[in-house]
Amino acid sequence: MKGLKIIVAVKQVPGTDEVRTDPKTNSLIRQGVPGILNPEDRNAVEAALCLKEKHGAAVTALTMGPPEAGDVLEEVFAMGVDKGILLTDMAFAGSDTLITAFILSRAIIKSGRFDLILCGRHAIDGETAQVGPQIAGFMDLPQVTYAEEIVLEKGFITVRRDLEDCQEWVKVKLPAVVTVTSRINRPRYPSLYNVQTACDGSLLTTWGAEDLKVPASMLGLDASPTVIKKIFEPDHKKRGEIIPGDEKEMAASLIEKLKGVNVI
């Protein structure tokens, strides 16, 4: 049997959930917000590296974004990922989940044989959780979402899924797409030992629209079914009443007020 080949799709996301919008332009203020590796993608990388350690595997990380998105590939190289593909092209900009998944699946096909595609459940920016299943859709592969454990045996994987009210064990023949939650593992830290190799460019391949042989009309904002009309900050309820007094008085008037609105 040929060695296991695992693809991990990762994304660079703004490094904080304290993002703000610019009320004038209706757009996100990204300035000064560093890009980080999406947290659950880190879990996906860890899951791939665990399978690599146990069964032997070549792990390739795949990301799409501006050239700076290559930073997250360097970081996963330092974790132990073997190769990386950066998909960067102005033509990709503005792609929604459908088009993003299309581009990623084109790149996966171009990269050759594979057994398993791992993704984080969702990215902390858009929080759609759609790209993993949609990659599976474009490649006509089975998908398993919400994975919190993956066990590999003889061309199959058994996955424990974390669902709302139950845990579900499913068995799938490879190749397949699996999206993982943060419960699956505790990701390792990238190692300083790997910093030199991670940054010397030897592990990185960069592809644009031409490499994928996809016309620009099928890419980016224009090809995407969904469009973001506006973004805004949610308005929270108005400030209520601060109950004065010492502990005794506060407790007493709180109880009285709760009784007043019939909640106790």
Partner: peptide, 14 residues
């Protein structure tokens, strides 16, 4: 350099 930035990120994160 890229190496210096990556190493700094690794240290900060840890």
């Amino acid at each position: 350099t890229k190496q210096q930035k990556l190493a700094r990120k690794i240290a900060r994160n840890f």
